[in-house]
């Protein structure tokens, strides 16, 4: 095990995959000599050359669509959207091209494309540079959407994404770049679509991803002192959603809270809640609660933005409410 940051783990995944497979290349805005807007691709161009790691113009439609074209013709591009919010700029390329090209052309092609998309609050980045748009992609059949919350998951999920024959949107959280954690040495792969129980518990389940995993763990720690055992399930991606792990946890605890930074309407928490309601209603001892972002655009102020996403206290209150429900 080595301790490294979330950003460093992403960088390591990219370096290992560039080293392993000559068909892998990286393109995006500022990913070359500059090393990425958040420093995530630092050193990669220097090590692998300008042919493998290069800058593009500010052209998100080309960035993703060009990635699809390269993927259709035998390569494995990793493209970086500078902010996950820019998914909206390249939506036709993501939603209609990357996701559907294989299906609509009769399975004659595969689209081994990774779209890295830094999401989440970053301290005053504002309404168009702070969002968590995974819910926008829930209906994109053909696409995978992964959401790492720890350095080890960031490494293992990205390596799997690069090796996948399917298009993968990899939503990394900007606020977690500096987070340190233990990362296995050697080859570390995490299968796409497999949840991880970040903390075991018996009384209430919190399903959360990226930054909210850490707030859920903090809430669980506080509640443990009161004798309440919270189970924290990180699905590590919303498409495919590991419903088996979520169901098993709810069947054990009988209580479900789903939490993400994005607002509840149209968010992936609704999908989790609906699935559990359809398949495990009889196990529920309390109503399902969505503890999600406020239903507003994210304010620019770095103070106010914190009120747009759920806090540890919000999660604690939700857990207590679930436990006191009669």
């Amino acid at each position: 095990m080595t301790v490294m940051t979330y950003a460093r783990a992403i960088n390591r995944a990219l370096a290992e995959e560039l080293e392993r497979d000559a068909d892998v290349f990286i393109m995006g805005q500022d990913v070359g000599a500059f090393g990425g807007a958040f420093g995530v691709t630092r050193g990669l161009q220097e090590r692998f050359g300008r042919r493998r790691v290069f800058d593009t113009p500010i052209s998100e439609n080309f960035l993703v669509g060009g990635g699809v074209g390269a993927a259709l013709t035998g390569l494995r591009p990793v493209v970086e959207l500078q902010y996950a919010d820019f998914i909206a700029v390249a939506m036709d390329e993501i939603y209609n091209k990357a996701a559907k090209w294989r299906y609509m052309h009769g399975g004659l092609f595969s689209v081994p494309l990774v779209i890295r998309a830094p999401g989440g609050l970053a301290g005053g980045a504002g309404p168009e540079h702070s969002q968590s748009p995974e819910g926008l992609l829930l209906s994109a059949a053909g696409l995978h959407v992964v959401t790492p919350s720890t350095p080890a998951d960031a490494l293992g999920l990205l390596k799997s994404a690069v090796r996948s024959s399917n298009p993968v949107v990899y939503i990394e959280h900007k606020g977690l770049y500096g987070l340190k954690g233990e990362v296995p040495d050697g080859e570390h792969l995490i299968p796409i679509g497999v949840a991880d129980v970040k903390r075991e518990g018996t009384d209430v389940t919190i399903v959360a991803w990226t930054s909210m995993v850490h707030r859920a763990l903090a809430a669980a720690e506080t509640l443990a002192a009161e004798g309440i055992q919270v189970e924290v399930v990180d699905p590590r991606g919303v498409r495919p959603l590991d419903t088996d792990t979520i169901l098993a946890s709810v069947q054990k605890t009988g209580r479900l809270i789903v939490s993400h930074e994005a607002p509840a309407p149209g968010g992936a928490a609704s999908e989790v809640a609906a699935y559990v309601a359809e398949h495990a209603l009889d196990y529920l001892a309390a109503p399902i609660q969505r503890v999600c972002g406020a239903d507003i655009p994210i304010p620019q102020s770095s103070d106010l933005e914190q009120y747009a996403i759920p806090s540890v206290d919000d999660l604690i209150r939700a857990c207590r409410s679930a436990l006191s429900y009669r």
Binding site: N61, F62, V64, G65, G66, G67, V68, G69, A70, A71, L72, T73, G74, L75, P77, E93, K97
Partner: peptide, 9 residues
């Protein structure tokens, strides 16, 4: 964009 990507490829 797909044509440009195929050309890049």
């Amino acid at each position: 964009p797909i044509a440009a990507g195929a050309g890049l490829s």
